[in-house]
Design a protein around this nucleic acid. Sequence first.
DNA 1: TTGTAGGCGTTATCAT
DNA 2: ATGATAACGCCTACAA
Lengths: 330, 330
Amino acid sequence: MSGNPTMNDVAREANVALKTVSRYVNGETNIGAPLATRIQEAIDALGYRRNLAAASIRPGRTSRMLGLIIGDLSNPYYSTIAGAIESTASDHGYLLTIGSSDEDGRRHDQLVDRLMEQRVDGLIIVPPTGAARDWSKLPPPIPALVFLDRPVDFDQADAVVADNAGGARLATAALAERGGRRIAFVGDSLDISTMRERLAGYRTALIEHGVREDPELVVTDAHRSVDAAVAIRRLLNERAIDGIFAANNRAAVGALMAFRDSGARVPLIGFDDFEAATLSTPAVSVVSHDITLMGEAAAEIVFARLSGDTSARRTHVLPATLVLRGSEDG
Amino acid sequence: MSGNPTMNDVAREANVALKTVSRYVNGETNIGAPLATRIQEAIDALGYRRNLAAASIRPGRTSRMLGLIIGDLSNPYYSTIAGAIESTASDHGYLLTIGSSDEDGRRHDQLVDRLMEQRVDGLIIVPPTGAARDWSKLPPPIPALVFLDRPVDFDQADAVVADNAGGARLATAALAERGGRRIAFVGDSLDISTMRERLAGYRTALIEHGVREDPELVVTDAHRSVDAAVAIRRLLNERAIDGIFAANNRAAVGALMAFRDSGARVPLIGFDDFEAATLSTPAVSVVSHDITLMGEAAAEIVFARLSGDTSARRTHVLPATLVLRGSEDG
DNA sequence: TTGTAGGCGTTATCAT
DNA sequence: ATGATAACGCCTACAA
């Protein structure tokens, strides 16, 4: 046996015309019972399976596939997004093809090209931290395109982002309202746009509460949990901080490590929920932006565009909410 | 403009033959410099992108796509597997299409059909808990097929599984060696094959240490963490247990909840690592089977088969290791 | 209800 | 080095 059986093989086996097999396979009703039986028997005998790739190249036919590019599928943050998108895609009868950019601009661009060449009907992208493709010079037509989680300066696409500044402001304000005057900001590099927004929200809250910002209390190089832990131990020992806004969940985990190691503890609020948050004592309060909702929203926007929604592209900002669990009181 | 530009459009624009464009796009070397320039200009002008779906229908050509079916992409356990497979696939220039079965047999079967019709070159499957497709009557040819994490009775496919029994035996033995004589088994339904294997390992260890099994100490209906917590609180209060083997990480989290709520604590070892394990005090010891390694192994097997490895299909059993962190001493 | 002819975008064959 | 022509597997006209 050389390759996979084709419709033609089935037609020959069943002594019918190719088109009749096509009709049968596609569930069209106008087929005589005897022929239908013969065709099904031929299909079973040959182990025929239709070739959707071949079908999809016909004009008017689509691949019924969505593409998703994220940083790293192993990261629970991204996989939650991916899961929400996959689930929504599945509801619409779509398959999801996923690529991880590892936050690398080149890899990201390769994935964009590959997925477009694969003719996905829609593309959802979490842009990498580093410089990526200049979207403005990407020639149309591009499929339904949605940027997720991070804003991109390209008005031909929709975007779904969380209210990072608003959430950071909520958290910092909660700490200030409980008397915090030396509240630390602990986060990752400001090359990451979400970090810049969260720092801006932190500053807004400080200003609103009449607190002068102390640059010594702002840490923006905590890439891993242990980095954050080291920085926070130092802040606790040398800077007399009385509150911590942990700008991502790695920073929050780092704070827990620092508390454990140093025996000291100050009020703490994190950004983005994490599994250990409810298990520690007291439980860690966090700003939660619902990434599941973000993923679903992005997918639904794609499907809206696919079904003809031509309204102006826009950026959808999803609210961030403060989940207080106790750690904000120290 | 009607559709996407095609090779034909490029050929007309550049005043060359179709085949010459094909050669250029596919990086064949035997092309004159002047034509190459004209073709590239035409490509840029038209915004041409090749259609891999169309290319893949030619005989001998493949889709360079892998399919993966798991329970739920939002679940960190599965997404870790998915991430490892995606990473390996990416190294081989392959894209990964993922579907979640939600542990539903029907949905699982649909995904198998869909991915096969999409002509993925290889298929990696975590079979759902419930009854799934009868693989034995699936007509060949099937793409390179690997079952992951759970054994399936089908000798036409490879399988990669963890040593569940061995790991459970290690954990239970560690508890018994520390004096445990009333060691509880807390896990999910025995409909799940891994649970059966872990229970078997638990029993083996008890026998080896001369401990008579007490059926009252075996819980096999803890589906969620809270279920496990409730059961464990009861065991602590009414059954005087002196050790807990938590047969999955939800059960381990449940144990932590029960300890917190009841104030009591006994030696504990879990199965499968989880983020909170190292943050609690004492840190939770676990049997760890490296699911990243499992995913990589599965993908590498697929690629080996794709490149012509025709050796007998086999089941690869990956070792489970005991990671002691303190909780085994109570 | 069934069949015939043609084309989708690409690559392969075989010429020039 | 370049090109004309025929597939690939399927579907959409348009007959019969």
